[in-house]
Design a protein around this nucleic acid. Structure first.
Length: 449
RNA sequence: GACCCCAUCGUCUAGUGGCCUAGGACACAGGGUUUUCAUCCCUGCAACACGGGUUCGACUCCCGUUGGGGUCGCCA
């Protein structure tokens, strides 16, 4: 109507599964757009297909949206409860002679079908794609009401978008070919046409539409894997959109501030897991240790069973903070700090323990550790330096076998910190165990190693 | 197959006719720091799909070709 018309967008998922990352980005773009323009977001659940829609999916979608920090101003509205509204408008079109009833009987009702003109063109003015034209001769008649009495997608969508006052329809590219049909319906119903913005799809590594066969596609999966909500949203916002300067890590407020539909690209964007991991790592490194501790706790719950383990928890988390890409990785990176028994990595054992002279070195190290009354990082380091000099060997010769003996793996936080965190008694036991494993040649290897 | 969309480094992108010998980030490679890994720092690699126009001048505009994708349900 005029400049003061408030912007209103909507996110309209079908509750037929978990929230997919593609849907999440669509929701995010809608949300960013209304927040940027002080508008309103409507959440509408498109559950006209009673067979495929489930309450469980609806719940899952709500939870994922909540995790992403996407909130809405109106709704949720459920299309399943609006049958009569759709029916009324369908009958209107019937009365006007623009639609007809199907004689093909499939259910208890007669389907109502919109008659598409034989010729003519329908032009869409899209914010992202500009003008797109379709020829009516290629468009089939449109089902308005299905013979089960429920409204079909294209119809319910148009009626709702109009009745709910949607000014901007921001949705996936895959709907572009539905749009001419919807445009025809808008005109037949005498509705005002909203602005359209068809955002390109998120693609899998092979450049086809991202789907289950490419691996994990649910938002929930990424939450469980230990990605931070802010990092995930940051990453998603950069898929198909860019602020125009060189910023990569951006806060939600910065993204909102910089967001605009005309900066969205036309090209599909491949979901780059490596970049997500990198960005998540950036967020983790900048995190306060205590905060990181709370994010990681759930993954280690079963190991934090003793007072001693609980006590060293924060110290251990601090040791791996800069090594973490996701919270879930905290398990393989730290379990040896807490576990009673450790498992060994085959390669690490072969490379560092099954070598000449290792038994001798471990025996000497064992004495050093046993004799260390002051079990501090500094003191241990001093003792090791002394040992190294008396044996006339390199640091590496000393440290690698010790690391593998007490952690089971070849990469860990700095050795003295690690020794201290594992604890004197456990270190002594593990070195002794390692020595006997070397002698017997039989190690308790990590499963799959 | 028909209709529609798209096309800058491997990936995400900047670029809206001269500022481009095309910029940044991820990834990758090499080097430095480190006892290992990671971090951090440095360096390198690497792109305007192709062919025609338009123009004094095209990555930027137009046409075509090729390639990729999407849609063709009484699913959404």
């Amino acid at each position: 109507m005029n400049d003061t018309t408030i912007v209103k967008a909507r996110f309209a998922p079908a509750p037929t599964g978990y929230l997919h990352v593609g849907g999440a980005r669509t929701a995010l773009f809608n949300w960013l757009y209304v927040r940027r323009n002080k508008g309103k977001l409507v959440l509408r659940i498109e559950d006209t297909d009673a067979v495929r829609s489930t309450e469980e999916s609806t719940k899952a979608i709500f939870e994922s949206l909540k995790w992403l920090g996407i909130d809405w101003d109106e709704g949720p509205f459920f299309q399943s409860g609006r049958k009569e509204i759709y029916r009324k408008h369908a009958e209107d079109l019937l009365a006007k002679g623009l639609a007809y009833e199907s004689d093909e009987v499939k259910g208890n009702h007669k389907a109502i079908i919109f008659k598409v003109p034989e010729s003519g063109k329908v032009a869409i003015q899209d914010i992202i794609h500009d003008k797109v034209e379709f020829d009516c001769s290629f468009i089939k008649d449109i089902v308005l009401m299905k013979s089960d009495g429920t409204a079909a997608y294209n119809f319910a969508c148009v009626v709702d978008d109009c009745l709910m006052g949607i000014t901007h329809v921001i949705r996936g590219d895959d709907h572009l070919s539905n749009t001419p049909k919807q445009l025809l319906l808008y005109k037949a119903l005498g509705f005002k046409v909203p602005q359209f913005a068809h955002v390109p799809l998120i693609l899998g590594p092979d450049a086809s539409r991202l789907s289950k066969r490419h691996g994990a596609t649910s938002v929930e999966h990424y939450r469980k894997e230990g990605y931070l909500d802010k990092a995930f949203v940051n990453f998603l916002s950069l898929l198909g959109w860019a602020p125009g300067d060189d910023r990569e890590k951006m806060s939600i407020d910065e993204i909102i501030e910089a967001f605009s539909l005309d900066r969205i690209g036309k090209k599909g964007a491949i979901f780059d897991l490596k970049k997500l991991q990198w960005l998540n790592g950036v967020y983790i490194r900048e995190m306060d240790v205590k905060e990181l501790c709370s994010y990681c706790r759930g993954y280690l719950e079963s190991l934090l069973d003793t007072e001693e383990n609980k006590q060293k928890y924060e110290f251990v988390i601090a040791l791996v903070q800069e090594r973490l890409k996701t919270f879930a990785e905290v398990v393989p990176l730290t379990k040896f700090f807490f576990a009673k028994e450790i498992k060994y990595g085959r390669k690490a054992v072969k490379k560092y323990l099954l070598k000449d002279g290792v038994l001798d070195v471990l025996d000497k190290v064992l004495s050093v550790i046993e004799d260390a009354d002051d079990f501090s990082i500094e003191n241990l380091e001093k003792a090791f330096v002394a040992l190294k000099e008396s044996l006339n060997v390199s640091n590496a010769k000393l440290i690698h076998p010790v690391r593998v003996s007490i952690t089971g793996i070849a990469a860990s936080p700095p050795i003295f910190e690690t020794i201290v965190a594992v604890g004197k008694d456990a270190c002594i036991k593990r070195i002794k165990d390692a020595m006997s494993f070397i002698k017997s040649g039989e190690f308790p290897y990590e499963l799959g190693e």
